[in-house]
Design a binder for these strands. Structure first.
Lengths: 351, 351
DNA sequence: CTGAAAGCGCTTACAG
DNA sequence: CTGAAAGCGCTTACAG
């Protein structure tokens, strides 16, 4: 055991003394920079090893301005696809020897501001931000102003000169409704938690999250193309909690002209959607067809298996990290495409 | 737009000059320490605000030895319960104004060693480690040796004087098999990915992960109590991949005296278990009863809903972080209990 | 209450 | 190739 008194860790000066060289020479050997004699280097490294030396990153950061860490600010992490994207970021960071500094914003701009201040103070070498609100961006501009590379995650922010990593939601969404139209569906409901319970959606309306806007507009495009009025009255943006989401689905199904197909903006909403549909005893897809965004493994495990729109989360996460660590590296921003995966939960409309 | 040339951010010295005070006075006002005149403080803060001053955390760290960050080293993060625990840690850290420094080990001790070195170099104020292997601990001892508070996540490591945050798996596990015994089950199979495909399990065997050992031994206790030989031949420790897990379940079901109940050590294993059972056309629970560890939301959504053993991941994560940030704070280590949730996937044994 | 100065542990020109 | 010295941006005794 012998945890004893925590002894002060050895510094480069200690190593230098033991090796009988100057501090400058020691750190040159240790850091692998500058010119240095091979034999001297060996001696220094031996001394470092003997003492169990490890450089103090804070001191290095102060000199170089680089912290050796990648900052990530996320709105929420309980969405089960997040770990996959996060894993991509972490892996990319590890390959460059960087650690990941994480701070959550909990969907609040005020928290996001604090988180960014915190990470910027820690001199992160790059920052990935999943912005809470596209309309509030001053604090984001500060990031690029101080010269820290910024990458936006899945949400475009107008007026901000930063690359956005996102999958193209429009095309896959259109593909889904085109398929539903073919199957005779005209009344298609869409629910996303944007915490705007009152809002009546109208086409082209500016939504706080670009990705949601892309989804809705992508879903409605085939209607317009086919000369059919899109069911804008079946769009709901409830609060983030289960009850509110359930209420939204019930209100859709209780309406005068209820939907024959329901789409959930993410898997957490889909769970509630399934609960509601089952609690009402509706047959799937006999009485109502279902689909959700994000291809979680359980989508295959429920009965019938759920139709989903998938995106390459891991690759996107990796790409975001690489771009944040090395902004000059990519001349053109890679594009990621979402993909419709049809499963048993989608079928012909009733009647 | 106007990203222009990234101007060097203002320092405390700049603020001091603008406010017409010394550097020491300025930092005292800014940092809120030491004695200081209210009016002077106001002037300094105004100057700081005007310049957009933010302290350089690296410099602060060098002086104080505290980095204002909590380190977390995890074996893997793709287990879907991880975000919940992580959220607890992040929330606790945020309450103390700390950021979270994350590094993954990918289940490799060598990577774990690197990750710990990286985070220790960054002077984390506390460290939570989900150890990859209980038998390899020197690098963990170094953590406490340098005086950094260490908290172990869900895995006890012998010879290490550090608190362990874990739920008691034995009791809930025993409760599960007791129930299964009542229902007439004698042949109960258990699969966990420990990457020891050859190993034949025997009671009391030292496993690389304490939590798995607790689960198995907890499951088998009621057998011994009832004077029934535990089905040690139905324990499998395949590699972490889907195919290996599927092969393990097939091998159990193909055996001469196959199990009537199957238990998965986590939800990812359970997905494959479900696939295998369904692909073989076995009725649940008519021909085989199923259960898994971790109460993921989809467990309720499959048909029949899965019996699970749940643990308070969020609270455990929060507690781990609090303990790592303030080791003196808790006089006694809180205990967390796992809980059996019986659902339709468990029924009477056939015959 | 305030200031001058030393120091935290490195890196980086600048001489030699 | 190596060393002495200054400096990164703070904090912290020590005087006053």
């Amino acid at each position: 055991m012998a945890s004893s008194v925590p002894t002060k860790p050895p510094t480069a000066a200690d190593v230098a003394t033991l090796a009988g060289v100057s501090k400058a020479t020691a750190t040159r050997a240790l850091g692998g920079y500058g010119r240095i004699n091979e034999e001297t280097k060996r001696r220094v490294l031996a001394a470092a090893n003997q003492l169990g030396y490890h450089p103090n990153a804070a001191a290095q950061t102060m000199n170089t301005g680089r912290s050796g860490s990648l900052g990530i600010v996320a709105r929420g992490i309980t969405n089960p696809v997040w770990p996959v994207a996060f894993q991509g970021m972490v892996d990319a960071a590890r390959l460059q020897g960087l650690a990941v500094l994480f701070a959550g914003s909990g969907f609040e701009v005020s928290e996001e501001r604090k988180a960014i201040r915190l990470l910027l103070g820690k001199q992160v070498d790059g920052l990935i931000v999943s912005a809470a609100d596209r309309r509030d961006v001053e604090h984001l501009q500060r990031i690029t102003a101080v010269g820290t590379p910024l990458v936006l995650w899945e949400r475009r922010v107008p007026g901000l000169d930063a690359p956005v990593i996102e999958a193209d939601m429009r095309q896959a969404s259109s593909e889904l409704t085109r398929r539903l139209l073919d199957l005779g569906h005209r009344r298609i409901g869409f629910v996303s938690s944007l915490a705007m319970p009152q809002a009546a959606y109208s086409i082209g309306a500016e939504l706080p999250a670009s990705i949601i806007q892309d989804k809705v507009e992508g879903l409605f495009t085939p209607f317009s193309e086919a000369g059919i009025a899109p069911p804008v009255d079946l769009v709901r943006f409830p609060e983030r909690d289960r009850d509110a989401i359930a209420a939204a689905y019930h209100s859709l199904l209780d309406g005068p002209n209820p939907p024959t197909a329901l789409i959930a903006s993410d898997s957490q909403i889909a769970e509630t959607m399934l609960d509601v549909v089952r609690s009402r005893g509706l047959r799937i897809p006999g009485e109502v067809s279902l689909a959700m965004y994000d291809d979680l493994s359980w989508a295959r495990l429920v009965d019938p298996p759920l139709t989903v729109i998938a995106q390459p989360d891991y690759d996107m996460g990796k790409c975001a990290a690489e771009l944040a660590m090395n902004p000059a590296g990519a001349s053109t921003l890679p594009s990621f495409s979402a993909r419709l995966i049809l499963r048993g939960s989608v079928g012909r409309a009733q009647d």
